[in-house]
Design a protein around this nucleic acid. Structure first.
Length: 273
DNA sequence: CAAGATTCCTGGTGGC
DNA sequence: TGCCACCAGGAATCTT
């Protein structure tokens, strides 16, 4: 579910309610997420949040004791700020109550997400956080970087831009959308992409992600912002989940194919090989 | 190595 | 609220 815009929307929503507030209680109702949630997470009760950062699709909640709660939302996870007395819904697994009498509640039906604990110093060394490519909205995600990363790969360009070693945060929705915006066919072999087209793709990825964040992300099924409301970028999608529907630009029916086990959408006229 | 397939889990949808 | 096959936004870990 959540790609970079949804994770960033969540970060923006929860951050002001956490930073500067002390953790009153950590409730672990279900610990069998993708990886077991460590029991010693509760030892962080009494500490105070000092920052809420994001790297790739990971949220990093740092405390004044230089501990970090790392959260990944997987396919179906969401975080909400609620009142601590609110009923626990079926797939509410974890609650972190803070001093302003709000609770950060983690909800995840499929339990593909993860909640872990690490020392702040491990952010640079942990296996999940090393070997990640550049942030797409930072200055080191350049056409030169993308071109160099693609030039020795034969996989379709759509599969490549979903590889976190090449660039992080681009999931299945935004991969298709970015390629549409840049007029690039998703099936082009990575090593056939010219430098000018790599530049177009970099710009398109930046634009799509930025616009989606401004709309609060994309809600297809599960995703909710931290205030419980859906994101509105779905209305701005040009190709994703629009198989057979007319292209919003040229009316050509949108094409669909499973690529690398993931649904892929494109316009055969607007996007050229 | 690179590339492709499998796996974790639950719920919604659409066909019958 | 019938049954069932199929599909879903991620990504580590396998197999080829």
């Amino acid at each position: 579910m959540p790609e970079l815009p949804e994770v960033e929307t969540t970060r923006l929503g929860i951050s002001p309610h956490l930073i500067g507030h002390q953790i009153r209680e950590i409730i672990l109702r279900r610990r069998d997420l993708r990886w077991p949630v460590p029991q010693n997470l509760t030892e962080l009760e009494g500490t105070t949040f000092v920052s809420v950062k994001r790297r790739s699709k990971y949220l990093l909640l740092e405390t004044d004791t230089q501990d970090v709660i790392l959260i990944h939302l997987g396919m179906s996870g969401s975080l909400r700020m609620i009142h601590p007395g609110e009923d626990w819904k079926k797939h509410d697994h974890i609650g972190i109550t803070v001093g302003n009498n709000l609770q950060l509640r983690y909800h995840d039906p499929r339990r593909f997400g993860s909640v872990m604990r690490m020392a702040a110093s491990e952010i640079r060394t942990h296996s999940l956080l090393t070997n990640l490519g550049p942030e797409p909205l930072e200055s080191d995600f350049t056409a030169a970087h993308l071109y160099a990363a693609l030039r020795n790969k034969s996989i379709p360009v759509k599969v490549a831009i979903m590889d976190a070693k090449i660039v992080v945060g681009v999931g299945n929705i935004y991969a298709s959308e970015s390629l549409f915006r840049s007029g690039i066919h998703p099936l082009i072999e990575s090593n056939k992409l010219t430098k000018p087209r790599a530049q177009k793709l970099v710009s398109a990825i930046r634009e799509v992600l930025t616009e989606s964040i401004s709309q609060g992300g994309t809600t297809l099924r599960d995703f909710l912002k931290s205030d419980g409301e859906p994101g509105y970028f779905k209305q701005c999608l040009f190709v994703y989940d629009r198989k057979g529907e007319p292209c919003r630009v040229c009316k050509t029916p949108i094409s669909h194919k499973v690529l690398g086990q993931r649904a892929t959408y494109w316009c055969g006229k607007c996007q050229r090989r």
